[in-house]
Amino acid sequence: KIDIQSDVEPKEYYYKKREIFNDKIMKSEYDIELASLFIYLNKHCFNGLYRVNSKGLFNVPFNNSLAKSFNEDNIKAVSGYLQKVTILEGDFEVACQNAQEGDFIFLDSPYAPLNDNSFEAYTKEGFDIESHKRLAILFDRLTKKGCFCMLTNHNTVFIEDLYKNYSREVIKVRRYINSDASNRKGEEVIITNY
């Protein structure tokens, strides 16, 4: 449980909780307190962004929000639903190795860079060009198995080339995370094999 202290400024409180969260990450203390800190930080960080530095520590700044940190009914409903769900941690190829014909699989990878200066590294491990190529090969394998696959990404020539044999729907999007407000519009593509 996270105690809310009315005598501490919200920004100062946020950074104290972020420090505790990162300390628990460094100590591999994956417990209920870490989960509650994650929910709090996600609600009060800039745009709900999850990003870490090269050491794997959460480094998103405070969003100046005084919004409620959680919805108890929603958390209980999600908890009930998750009792019937298997969550896998690890490489995407391993996560999909038991996929069977008729399964629906949504692949939500980090987006490919728009250009050489694009920021795309939200985790310390990153998701490089080779990872995108491996994902496209997995998409092909899952298609041959008879799985229904969908993924989204930036609408770039690189992504178009990787998925040229599949259905592609280009959509206009408004981005909420960009240091330059004039660059918050773009195109994404929804790729499906059905």
Rank of each mutant, 00 (worst) to 15 (best):
I190F: 08
N71H: 13
V78S: 08
D73A: 10
M26P: 06
A99K: 02
F70C: 07
E125S: 14
C149V: 14
S118G: 06
E120R: 08
E33F: 00
R184M: 13
V173P: 05
L88C: 10
V173K: 05
R141L: 07
K76P: 02
F58G: 00
S69V: 02
L114A: 08
A67Q: 07
V85E: 08
D103S: 10
V157C: 07
T152M: 11
N178R: 09
S167V: 05
V94D: 14
I129F: 01
Y122A: 05
I87Y: 09
N98M: 12
E101T: 11
K185V: 11
C45H: 01
S79E: 12
M150A: 15
I20P: 03
Q5V: 01
A35G: 11
A77Y: 09
D180R: 12
S65I: 02
V173G: 02
L138R: 00
T123M: 08
N64L: 11
E29K: 12
G56T: 07
S54I: 03
F106Q: 09
E160N: 11
R134Q: 04
S118T: 11
Y163L: 04
E9P: 06
E89T: 14
G80S: 15
V85C: 10
T152N: 12
K84V: 02
T86Q: 13
D116R: 15
T143S: 15
E33L: 14
Y176E: 07
Y40H: 04
L107P: 01
L107A: 09
I190H: 02
E101S: 15
N71Q: 12
E93F: 08
L162A: 03
F62Q: 02
P110R: 02
A121C: 10
E130T: 07
E29R: 08
E101L: 03
G80K: 12
N64I: 01
G48D: 06
I32D: 06
E187H: 11
P113A: 10
L114M: 13
T156V: 06
Y163Q: 01
D128P: 01
Y13V: 00
K144E: 15
S109H: 03
I39W: 00
P110S: 13
V8G: 03
L162V: 00
C45Y: 03
G126I: 01
N183F: 04
N64D: 13
F38S: 09
M26C: 12
L34F: 11
G102E: 12
